[in-house]
Amino acid sequence: MNKYDFVFTGVSLQALGSGALYWPTKNLLCVSDLHLGKANRMARHGGSQLPPYDTCETLNRLSHDLDVTRASTVICLGDSFDDLTAIKSLPENQRVWITQLQAGRRWIWIEGNHDPGNYSFNGLNLPEFSEFPLTFAHIARSKTTGEVSGHYHPKATVNINGRSITRPAFLMDDNRLIMPAYGTYTGGLRSDNRIFTKLLQETAYAILTGQKPVQIPMPR
């Protein structure tokens, strides 16, 4: 599989090339910041009409990760939908699709800043979720340990002989793990941004997503 094995606060985890996080012993898959319906929201606000295939593409990748991992628990780590109207605007086939993905699985929706109070789908809606020793929340908190969060859409850049490669990335130190955005139309915040350099210890790492995820010291 297209994955990178690592240990975070004593737990063996896998960073998938797609940007999902897999916890084998719990058979748990976590994805963050899906931003489903983003193109729809932008068009609605009178902006440009982006290709309306982002939701489809994101769900395709999620289906694939679920097929490969056969996860029994799924955590969507917040900002699963770009806004509440976007949920209502989802075409019927995509709503059915999401429901099908949920079938036979424990499904947890963590609340994000884009989708507070989303009760449109089955599953548990929670502000945060704990599965010892990890805690899953949308936004990183100031003091914490074993916390997995999303929100910031981290990405990291490596320069090799003048070639610069930038990818969405997992960032982590001893206490926290910040997940890359999984949604198709999501940009990123570079790991050398002050937000990350303040949140994460000097010894932080980045795991770059892609065909073959790799771990590097977090560029700051």
Partner: peptide, 20 residues
């Protein structure tokens, strides 16, 4: 809006080429 709202035009290109 901050930089995480902006995403690469490559993604748009790839999505469009794949679906339309």
């Amino acid at each position: 809006s901050g930089r995480q709202a902006m995403f690469s035009s490559d993604i748009l290109y790839e999505t469009l080429a794949k679906y339309d």
